[in-house]
């Protein structure tokens, strides 16, 4: 029971971190049709920028400076890069961000070196918030929840209460119609791309010291964010949120499953030897396949319902 409660909490924190990354990506993806491969790289950049700003000024300054920097970089990518390749089609745009991913990874190694950098939780937040069944719940995780919750609220307000938000919402579902109505769609694109990168940068600031700030953090998190976006569905922030939480929960809960399919059928008196490939697959306990479950789920989802959980059109 206590494992379930603690895992629930941890899964929620991880899911919210995923959501911070995925929300920006899903906005970009739904509007521009670009699956931005460099999105996780921006997250990494946010973490490294926060590390440097924290060293120079302080963590609280980093919380503002690093995301703004990432947003500016995002705007630059959109204006000077994506807009240029836009007329070559979606594949060209996607491949452009794919190339950026390589450059960012190596660039980060060149600037900050290859080893992890000591980007730590600020001392002010480095204490146990409360104890559940003898386990500390670090205050920093509470802080992360606060930030991501605040972000969720402000996105929602922005999208429903402001003019630009309404245009974005319209452009999410009917991009062609919006441009026909005379809105400056390229500027909306730039805004959304910069906004998405801002969120990724913010996720980097609070995720970089929650995890480890190192050059491989982008390639480690990138694919799973794609999974969240595709699973959640195009054009739906709600779907993205639910997908993030589901993926966060899966990652934490699969760990506590010790049984395998072979164990399951053992109850019926059938034993499966593990000396061939099929037998091996059936004998793997749940905790070992946990990190693969999101991919399997995504494939299943796309096969059954290509528009994703709450998407309003096919991906």
């Amino acid at each position: 029971m206590e494992i379930v409660l603690i895992s629930l909490l941890n899964g929620f924190v991880y899911g919210m971190l995923l959501f911070m990354l995925a929300s920006g990506l899903t906005l970009i993806f739904s509007m521009m049709g670009v699956l931005n491969f460099a999105h996780a790289s921006i997250y990494m950049l946010g973490a490294y920028a926060a590390f440097d700003v924290t060293r120079l000024i302080g963590f609280w300054a980093a919380l503002i400076v690093a995301p703004v920097l990432c947003g500016a970089i995002g705007a630059a990518i959109e204006i000077y890069g994506l807009r240029r390749v836009h007329h070559n089609g979606h594949i060209a745009e996607l491949l452009f961000t794919f190339g950026l991913f390589f450059i960012f990874e190596r660039g980060v190694q060149m600037i900050w070196g290859m080893l992890p950098v000591p980007y730590r939780v600020p001392p002010l937040l480095d204490f146990a918030l409360f104890r559940v069944y003898g386990s500390n719940f670090p205050a920093y995780r509470g802080f992360m929840l606060l930030i991501s919750g605040g972000m969720l609220l402000s996105i929602w307000l922005l999208l429903t209460r402001t003019r630009i938000g309404l245009i974005i919402q319209a452009a999410l579902t009917h991009p062609n119609m919006v441009s026909s109505l005379g809105h400056n769609v390229p500027r909306v694109f730039t805004t959304v791309f910069a906004g998405g990168c801002f969120l990724a940068g913010l996720a980097g600031v609070i995720g970089g010291n929650y995890q480890i700030t190192e050059p491989t953090m982008a390639s480690a998190l990138g694919p799973i964010v794609f999974v969240v976006v595709v699973f959640g569905g195009l054009g739906s922030l709600m779907g993205c949120f639910i997908a993030s939480i589901i993926m966060g929960m899966i990652q934490t809960f699969s760990v506590i499953i010790d049984g395998s399919i072979a164990d399951l059928v053992k109850g019926f008196g059938v034993s499966i030897p593990s000396d061939n490939l099929l037998g091996e697959i059936l004998n793997v306990p749940g905790s070992r396949v946990g990190p693969l479950l999101p991919y399997a789920l995504m494939i299943l989802m796309l096969l059954v319902r290509p528009r994703g959980l709450m998407g309003n059109r096919d991906t």
Binding site: V227, E280, P291, Y295
Partner: peptide
Amino acid sequence: ATAFAMITMGIGELVGASAIMFHS
């Protein structure tokens, strides 16, 4: 289109991870 790309990515990840996990 994108759904195809994502399924192939998923298959790639699954097979890639299996290659380390399964010895036979």
